[in-house]
Design a protein around this nucleic acid. Structure first.
Lengths: 223, 223
DNA sequence: ACAATAGTGTCTGTGAGACAGTATCGA
DNA sequence: TCGATACTGTCTCACAGACACTATTGT
């Protein structure tokens, strides 16, 4: 490939990274979105994103974007898909490499439902079910990410990234149920994940019922 | 996102599509590669690829590339991953969106092992196991594609794209075995895929043993 | 004692794995 | 008849699904 490169023939384009930062808030899957202030799509919700620098790796751009939007340095993220429709952005040709990030709510400096800057935590199912318009082709991207997330829950340990380092099993199960969109049987769920976790000495307290033991992911499975 | 776009700050770059056209030849997984004639990496094997036109969708560019390299219009392909290391190409910054395509050998105008133009069918396992150098970061891309292919075989019907429309079960099983890298039990394999296929009236003939029935994928599962 | 949630034991059905057997062609 | 490969029947075992039971807290 690339043997016959002719700069005059192939115009260059801009490459951006779009970020899908997911978290769980009040037993709902939420996505970090911003309200656009300028045209096009002023007033609409959009995914946060950054342009990729000429000397910057895609992963590095994603990391930088996450840092700028959340203040967080070391959260889990992975490349999702690259969207390259010609008219995605009415102003110019932009290739968008989407990245999905997962973070437990505790790490986000967000209050429930409240805004920080122009950023909101948007209920994903609600957004996708509604006919509310979203900037650019971002609704399509969100829809794809939601699908991929549900898929990967089944054959990876990705759900653990949505939960604090120390977690209870009822807590973790709830996350699985939210991502899968269906209830699970307690006993079966525990059997399935038991090989990946280990007890800690801690447990919850203060609730008017039996306390719940705190577990953590075994070291060998921590990314 | 994209609210603060400043053209002087973010330089544009080139976007290319790299193609991984897989097929099965002589019971081996093969990949279509070309021998580079120019620097850099002259004489090395490389993935075929094309630059994405300014008014061209990523998928459209992939389709065009496949057409140019194989002469084929309607074969299965899917986007794989986007590679954006800064020094991938020593000449300039190129973002490479990789696409994986699958085609039965019968559709390719290739003779076993022989070249057409500068194109070869390269044994994938052999290439990956060897320390033979490959142009750019293409070895990494191939390695990733090989992994993804093995994965998707297990939970999709992707293997059917490597086999003609009418196929025998021993034939299909062999493809699964090649992709999975392990032998399968006949009876179990048949039970597993029986729901997706249907008999035709045809069978093989001429061999010194019991003929093999020709099957096809049920309509509802085609693509 | 009771409400509420945490946690466990076990039956069942489904499906993958393993292997042995039967079927049908050309020579 | 025989060699070779196509095709089928069935046993076993692991595991997901389903459900009932026990455990431990605060009030």
């Amino acid at each position: 490939m690339l043997t016959d490169y002719d700069p005059s023939q192939y115009k260059k384009m801009s490459v951006a990274v779009d970020l899908l930062v997911f978290t769980i808030e009040e037993d709902r899957l939420k996505l970090l979105m911003i309200e656009r202030e300028e045209e096009p799509f002023a007033g609409k919700l959009a995914l946060p994103g950054v342009f990729v620098g000429i000397d910057e790796t895609l992963d590095a751009a994603a990391k930088r974007g996450i840092r700028e939007e959340t203040g967080l340095k070391d959260i889990y993220f992975e490349q999702l898909y690259t969207f390259g429709d010609v008219k995605r952005d009415p102003r110019m040709r932009i290739i968008s490499v989407s990245y999905m990030a997962l973070v437990p709510l505790e790490k986000l400096s967000f209050k429930a439902g409240k805004r920080t800057k122009d950023a909101y935590l948007v209920d994903v199912e609600e957004l996708l079910a509604s006919d509310r318009s979203v900037a650019f082709d971002h609704k399509k991207i969100i829809s794809y990410a939601r699908w991929r997330l549900a898929n990967k829950v089944e054959y990876t340990l990705i759900a653990f990234h949505l939960v604090p380092e120390g977690f209870t099993l009822p807590n973790l199960q709830k996350v699985y149920e939210i991502l899968l969109g269906k209830p699970l049987y307690k006993a079966n769920f525990r059997k399935k994940i038991s090989e990946f976790i280990e007890e800690t000495e801690f447990q919850t307290s203060g609730d008017a019922h039996r306390p719940s033991r705190i577990y953590r992911l075994k070291k060998e499975y921590v990314k």
